Simulated assay, not measured.
Amino acid sequence: MRTPPVVPKDEWEAAHARLLVKEKELTRARDALAAQRRRMPWLAVEEEYVFEGPRGRATLLDLFEGRRQLIVYRAFFEPGVHGWPDHACVGCSIMADQVADVAHLNARDTTFVNVSRAPQADIERVKARMGWTMPWYTMTDSFDADFGVDQWHGTNVFIRDGERVFRTYFVNGRGDEALGSAWAYLDITALGRQEEWEDSPEGYPQTKPYEWWNWHDAYSDTGPTAGQEQVRRAVGSGLLED
C-alpha cells in the first residue's frame, strides 16, 4: 500500500486549506442543485394506490400522515430476495440503518416511509430484529412498476395540495447512497430545508436557520430549547459557518 507522505504540521494545514477550497465549492454546487430540485415541475398522481400498514389499508395520501411532503424508499424485502425471510436485501438494510430519526423530518412537515412487498407480519418482525422504527408499508398494486422501483431500489418524493398528490423527485442507483441524514432527505424535497438562506421560489415556507432544531423527543414542546439557544449563540459568534 503506497501511502501519502508524512509532513510537518504547517504543510499538513496548508494541504488541508487547499482541499477546503474544493470542499466549499462542492457545498455551493450541492446547494445550487437542491435549488434546482425545488423548481422541478410536478407530476400529478392520478391513480389511487393502496398499501397495507400496521393499522390496515392505506392509500398513498394516507402515507403522508397529514403532513405536506412524503419520501418513499422502495426496500427489497420479500420472497425471492436474498436474505428472505430473516433479512431485507443487504443494500436496502444498509440504507435502513442510515435513516436519521424521522422526527426531524416530521418537524419540517415531511413523512418518511419504506415500502416492500413483504406481508406486514414479516415487516414488523424484521424491524424488531434490526431495530428499525420508520413506518413501513406493504405494496399491493403497481406502485413499484409505475414509479421505477420494481427492479431496483429507489426513492420517490411527493407533495400534496389538499387531497391532490404530486410526484416531485426521484433518485436511485448511487444517488441513494448519500441519503440518510435529515439534511440530505430535505434537500431532495420540493420545499427543501425551509430555511431563509435557501434559494427557493417566492412564497415557499421558510424560517430562520437552526431555529427549528430540537431533540428528537422534544419537537412537541413549545418555545426554544436550551440546545436551540446554544446553537443561536454559536451562530451569532461565528462558530457555526456553512
Results as ranks from 00 to 15, higher is better:
R68H: 12
R68P: 01
Q69D: 09
Q69S: 06
L70I: 08
L70C: 06
L70K: 07
I71W: 02
I71Q: 10
I71P: 11
I71G: 04
V72F: 03
V72Y: 07
Y73R: 04
R74N: 13
A75T: 10
F76A: 11
F76V: 08
F76T: 04
F77D: 10
F77Y: 15
E78L: 02
E78G: 03
E78W: 06
E78C: 01
P79R: 05
P79F: 06
P79C: 10
P79K: 12
P79I: 07
P79E: 07
G80Q: 01
G80Y: 07
V81Q: 15
V81T: 15
H82R: 15
G83P: 03
G83C: 07
G83N: 06
W84E: 04
P85N: 12
D86I: 05
D86Y: 12
H87E: 14
H87Q: 10
A88T: 04
A88L: 07
A88C: 08
V90M: 12
V90H: 14
G91C: 10
C92R: 15
C92H: 12
S93D: 11
S93L: 06
S93V: 04
I94F: 14
I94Q: 14
I94L: 13
M95D: 02
M95G: 05
M95S: 02
D97E: 11
Q98D: 09
Q98R: 15
V99A: 00
V99N: 06
V99I: 14
A100F: 07
A100M: 11
D101P: 07
D101S: 00
D101F: 00
V102C: 03
V102R: 01
V102N: 03
V102E: 01
V102Y: 00
V102F: 00
A103I: 07
A103E: 10
H104Y: 08
L105E: 02
N106F: 10
N106R: 09
N106H: 12
N106E: 13
N106K: 14
N106P: 05
N106Q: 13
A107G: 09
A107C: 00
R108L: 12
R108N: 15
R108G: 05
R108D: 06
D109E: 11
D109M: 03
D109A: 06
D109L: 05
D109G: 06
T110R: 01
T110S: 02
T110C: 06
T111W: 07
F112L: 14
F112R: 12
V113F: 02
V113N: 06
V113D: 00
N114P: 01
V115W: 00
V115Y: 01
V115P: 10
S116G: 07
S116A: 13
R117A: 00
R117N: 08
A118V: 00
A118D: 08
P119L: 10
P119N: 12
P119W: 09
A121T: 14
A121Q: 14
A121F: 14
D122M: 14
D122T: 04
D122H: 15
I123Q: 02
I123F: 02
E124T: 09
E124A: 14
E124N: 14
E124M: 14
R125A: 10
R125S: 03
R125Y: 02
